[in-house]
């Protein structure tokens, strides 16, 4: 059992006695790993005595849960009303073409994950993108390659 999986086992045991606590357990697992892997779901199923089918009903009902490892840098493109009207759709297209992935996917090297979010709460800066918590306001498609370079460099320095 890997360290992360044994941690997941601990989480399962912690929540098993409490009815209706599946979502809490899934939250914790995702908090550690960034996503909920099949093995973790199977283990939760066994330890919490919840059918696997039910676990995946919950996992796929809530957009919040991720089933595959997201990239190291998670790019959130806001497609809320203000950002969308201000042209974030073009920014999104630029990210897609630069990274050669669709929204909800990660690059094969695991470096970037692209997702859309609805409003990040700073419409005054629209259009807005957020990468791993860092906010980029008044975005233009031309800024996209710069941002990608910035994060590639940051990971290299790690």
């Amino acid at each position: 059992m890997s360290e992360e999986t044994s941690k997941a086992a601990e989480i399962a045991d912690k929540w098993r006695k409490k009815r209706g606590s599946l979502i809490m357990a899934l939250h914790e697992i995702q908090g550690i790993k960034g996503y909920v892997a099949w093995e973790d779901a199977v283990m939760l199923s066994e330890r919490m005595d919840v059918p696997l089918a039910r676990i995946y009903e919950v996992l796929t009902f809530y957009n919040f849960f991720k089933l595959v490892a997201p990239g190291k840098a998670v790019i959130s493109v806001c497609t809320g009303t203000a950002c969308y009207l201000k042209g974030n759709d073009k920014v999104l297209e630029k990210f897609k073409s630069e990274l050669k992935i669709k929204e909800g996917e990660s690059t094969p090297d695991g470096m970037f994950h692209l997702q859309c979010v609805r409003c990040v709460g700073c419409c005054g800066l629209a259009p807005v993108c957020v990468v791993n918590g860092k906010t980029y306001g008044r975005m233009t498609p031309e800024q996209v390659p710069e941002i990608l370079e910035e994060w590639k460099k940051a990971f290299k320095e790690d």
Binding site: P51, A53, R54, L59
Partner: peptide, 25 residues
Amino acid sequence: CQKVQNVWALSYLNRGFSTKITGAN
């Protein structure tokens, strides 16, 4: 499948328009 037979093979996947009846994941 779930409540009467207690087999839990079939389940809902996703939500809204993309809801699909299938096995877990």
